[in-house]
């Protein structure tokens, strides 16, 4: 079973942190639609997340399905380790 490289875990944790910030900002912006700075911050983090996703997926494989992630060859979205196994 392929073992994940060490730097995968740091990158994954950072991706989780950015995801959390995006979730919190989304909830905040639902009630504060005019908050310009928060929207700027949201867009910065969205951009940052795209970069981080490439980094994580280069080591792990596709994170999401249905076109949200590129697939490797052969079709590998169902390869281990699964999210609860990493």
């Amino acid at each position: 079973m392929k073992q994940l490289p060490k730097e995968f875990y740091a990158a994954m944790e950072e991706l989780q942190a950015v995801d959390f910030v995006l979730v919190d900002l989304t909830l905040y912006l639902d009630t504060h639609p005019e908050d310009y700075d928060a929207i700027n911050q949201f867009n910065q983090f969205a951009k940052e997340r795209r970069r981080l996703k490439k980094v994580v997926e280069s080591m792990y494989g596709p994170l999401q399905q249905f076109g949200n992630s590129y697939s490797g060859y052969p079709w590998n979205w169902d390869d281990g380790p699964w999210p609860w196994q990493i």
Partner: peptide, 12 residues
């Protein structure tokens, strides 16, 4: 910071 926010459970 994002990492702290992940630990504390809130951004603010």
């Amino acid at each position: 910071t994002p990492m702290q926010a992940l630990r504390t459970g809130t951004l603010w």
